[in-house]
Design a protein around this nucleic acid. Structure first.
Lengths: 242, 242
DNA sequence: ACCTGAACACCGTTCAAGT
DNA sequence: ACCTGAACACCGTTCAAGT
């Protein structure tokens, strides 16, 4: 159940690229610590994976590590820092895909790879909402997107903006899907869009009342690849008419 | 300071369209309630406006209303329901803008109106992340977007998908801006992207290392209107090649 | 240097009792 | 019908003390 966490954990702990670690190299002086950052972060990551951010508390992590809550604060400044640390290394656990050579296809492929990867790690999306990207291993995707955009004729500034727009589409879709999944779990029928329309609204909102019956179907049919394709076309279109 | 809340509050409480209220019409039998839903929701809205979702607790609302926390549960099922209720009526507090006739311009104008409105109500964005749209007064924008898309030749299904993509761009940008604003407040220098790159990364990430120095500037220059324009071009482009 | 215990100032929500 | 009080099972974090 927790072998995915264990894997990325060992990736973190692997000594070769130790210079990359943000924590300063500690000489082993004084009392040797009985718990180390890597196990703390690993356990936190497992909790996030299995139960999401809402389930992660310092007290819970401490219990699973086998210490007091306060022992954690000796290794980590606060809960936020712990959350950020769970992110680093996760990108490296996903194999880098073959990418097409055509820059437009490449752009779409990388964007979809981002989307697909994160769709399988919903907790990462949740944590990303709270802070920014701290996982260096994910930057190759940004680089690829910017590079492809520039190959298609965008200026560096336009390429960076295009990256951000693509990211908004990817992130927005993931958040939307998660909200839907959460709502599906609750048997609780809070009324959302289609339910709150009556025939009386047909005049003001003709399309929406007409589509209300098909809304669930239409929502389910949303095709990220197709939409991202269209967005990319639009973004690259900037190059042709300056 | 709280007059915006007060306004939408009175909008809520206005009797004419009472049939719209989700709560069932209560006959005034039994002990008359000393606190009513509208004041609870109004106070919650003010707290959200002034201090954000993190500051909103049932206990806090109770204190400001002048009751015990548990009295609230007689008017509201749980905190989540209270949050959803704060949303309803907010859209009506914003005047509806004049819109251009050309459907493409109209599409962009409505999208920017959504963005601009929500940019001024950050708490709404925060609450929206937790649930779905419950404010009927906001649906005219969705209707306009779908209508314009269809006028441009999209099928209803494509129009709904296009709406969602536009929403992702709007929402994604707002979330991004809020995260940036929050980060700017903390003097705390957690290292985010540009700081974590060294010269050693120039080989793997040439564009990003080259742009690292300009990153803040480039981020600040992000032009939502321009990007949404490009996205809309791409989405409408679907119509021409079926 | 590393860990512990007790404490502070909070949470959302349930439940039994009051008027 | 509406409200209260006490209680349950939690939070993140500080602080003084232990080894």
């Amino acid at each position: 159940m927790s072998h995915v966490a264990a894997e990325s954990e060992s990736t973190d702990a692997a000594p070769p690229a130790a210079a990359e670690k943000p924590v300063e190299q500690k000489k082993k002086r004084g009392r040797p610590s009985r718990i180390d950052l890597d196990t703390i972060v690993g356990i936190a990551r497992r909790i996030l994976q299995e139960e999401g951010v809402a389930a992660l508390s310092m007290r819970r992590v401490a219990k699973e590590v086998g210490t007091t809550p306060m022992a954690l604060y000796h290794h980590v400044r606060d809960k936020d820092e712990l959350l950020m640390l769970t992110l680093s290394g996760t990108a490296d656990s996903v194999p880098r895909p073959e990418l097409p050579d055509d820059p437009r296809d490449r752009l779409l492929a990388v964007s979809l790879h981002m989307h697909g990867t994160l769709a399988r790690m919903p907790w990462v999306v949740e944590v990303l909402s709270l802070g920014d990207l701290t996982d260096k291993g994910a930057l190759w995707m940004v680089e690829e997107i910017i590079d492809s955009c520039m190959t298609c004729g965008l200026t560096p500034a336009e390429a960076v903006a295009a990256y951000r727009t693509i990211w908004h589409c990817v992130y927005g879709d993931l958040v939307f899907r998660q909200a839907m999944a959460r709502r599906a779990e609750e048997p609780d029928r809070r009324r959302h869009f289609p339910g709150m329309l009556t025939d009386a609204d047909a005049e003001e909102l003709p399309h929406m009342t007409a589509l209300a019956g098909r809304w669930l179907e239409l929502t389910a049919d949303y095709d990220v690849a197709k939409q991202l394709g269209a967005v990319i076309d639009g973004l690259l279109g900037q190059a042709r008419r300056p």
